[in-house]
Design a protein around this nucleic acid. Sequence first.
DNA 1: CTGAAAGCGCTAACAT
DNA 2: ATGTTAGCGCTTTCAG
Lengths: 361, 361
Amino acid sequence: MTRKAVQSSPAIAPSNGATLVSVAKAASVSLATASRVFSNPELVRRDTAERVLRAAGELGFRPNLLGAKLRAQRTRIVGVMLPTLENAVFAECWRGIEEAALAQGYSLMLVTSRYEPERERERIEYLLRHRVDGMVLTVADAARSAVLDQLDAEGVPYVLAYNQAPSRGKRHSVSVDNRVSARAGVETLIAAGHRRIAVVSGAFVASDRARQRHAGYQDAMRAHGLESLPPLSLPAHTPTQTPADVERIRRLIAAPRAPTALFCTNDMLAIGVISILKRLGLSVPGDISVLGYDGIELGGLLEPPLSTVVQPNNEIGARALARLLERLKAGGSGGSPGRGVPRATLLPHVVRAGATVAPPA
Amino acid sequence: MTRKAVQSSPAIAPSNGATLVSVAKAASVSLATASRVFSNPELVRRDTAERVLRAAGELGFRPNLLGAKLRAQRTRIVGVMLPTLENAVFAECWRGIEEAALAQGYSLMLVTSRYEPERERERIEYLLRHRVDGMVLTVADAARSAVLDQLDAEGVPYVLAYNQAPSRGKRHSVSVDNRVSARAGVETLIAAGHRRIAVVSGAFVASDRARQRHAGYQDAMRAHGLESLPPLSLPAHTPTQTPADVERIRRLIAAPRAPTALFCTNDMLAIGVISILKRLGLSVPGDISVLGYDGIELGGLLEPPLSTVVQPNNEIGARALARLLERLKAGGSGGSPGRGVPRATLLPHVVRAGATVAPPA
DNA sequence: CTGAAAGCGCTAACAT
DNA sequence: ATGTTAGCGCTTTCAG
């Protein structure tokens, strides 16, 4: 029975194998009491607690969250799935999430999906294996997402970020109103005098936001008696500048009745498009106006600063996490507390003027 | 044990606490065998394995990594600490890390330090509590880092990314040669005819890379008999455009013998500086040249594309992770000698021409 | 308030 | 090749 002399030292040497048991021993209390000092201090007498704390300090005790999580059947880990961090929108969102989680003592596990539904599945499964308590995620298409259906079926609590859930649906989300805000953005273009406005987007199939924003564009055009132009759909949501991309832009602006303003469904795209336009010899906004969407900080640091529809990215992340924690505390599993509370939170947007939009030539 | 579970209609209630035990039971094998099917399949006969797998599928079994980790005393989780994701350099690096980890079946836990040593400590402690097997990190100052000292003392394996460890030191790192590459960059400025070149940096105290790059600048200047100018040190490493920042740039370029070229210690800074210069009425590179450092993709998407010293960001991340896993597999604990292998890996840099550098007016 | 005891789900000796 | 058996470090009833 004695398994002495395990000759090869095992994996990681935790520097000092101080465990709760050793702390309890050193403080002459039971394991249970030592545990309580860390998780429910109010159940322990002050001096007892202090004794334990002192022992812990002397032994260099570091709680092993694994043990706690396993036993407690709850990890206090939130899984986060974002399309990519290379688009600053999501990096800013992550920041909001991380701050909020830190403040509440929750841990995070981040995965990126690259806008690929296949990869979404795989990464979610990975989070599930880690027994995250819940998730904050941005999916390609919330309306038809295998991943979300699975999560619903399994009763895993989650909150969508950026994806805008139907207002009276069952899903929780934190976003701006993509359609309404896009319409507001396009209307500033119209107000500036533009009549021929085109949308430039990444592949619509990979982003429900892009589609909603396009719908907002159509709303604006229709409301002002203008004709919607066919959108220019580029392959990626992050900008690329392949010859093919350049050629498509060139054709777009060389057409007989070319648009005088472009509405890009995200800022990164807008930045890439502006560069291409400049290389094609056009001046922005002199020859053509460009409006972005997202409000990443970078946009404001450029010259001219990007005109764009601003969403509160940090806050979207922070609020999504906060909402998730509310759910976790309230119902535990997938339950549905919160009677009158709308599940789809819409945060306010702002159209930032910038300087990439001007009246048409 | 008498009769096997009749699972005629699986009624896959997912996430229903199917455990290895229940799977083993359903497949009429022992817990150990069931376990082996997932961790050491080669120790199990094919048909047995298939039976187990089938049972697992029917029960909707999802391994609980917590149990495995706790027992195995090794989590297969790597902690990652980066200053921020809002600087695209680190977002690109993260991508390399995530891909590499995914490929090797390792999990990640990400924290950001914001370049604050205080926060570094705190976030590292957090990772340690999660019993990560090792870490990939970028610290403010590798030479005097309380965090690194602690990690060394505790024997926690880690690999630095971006921080460049001394070539014959004990620390592992993956980076470019900051000083040499910066010198190479500045020499392209000199080759273009510039004599008065100034460095623009974030707070040096918060970044050893910035200091090394500044040293490279001095090397270049000295080697060409030029006088180093005092650096302009801005408060943050991410660009801000406060009136104070603008004023400092204005004074810099309004001086009697103002620099004709600026070397910014990172790309984000360079992008911000270029905008400020433009707003001050200067043209880049017509009136003044700007060279960046990092080679983030964004730089190439701007017009004019940013001239910069390119580091392979994805690869830095991927290699740092790979190096860490080698260490993990080799020694387990912290202090394996590793004979002839240099611990500081230097990846090649490239000076990308871009179009923000031109001969002085 | 504190203690004793029973595991959480899984892996790894050690047997067979 | 498979089974048995001990726990990993912690939380949590249930009793004092």
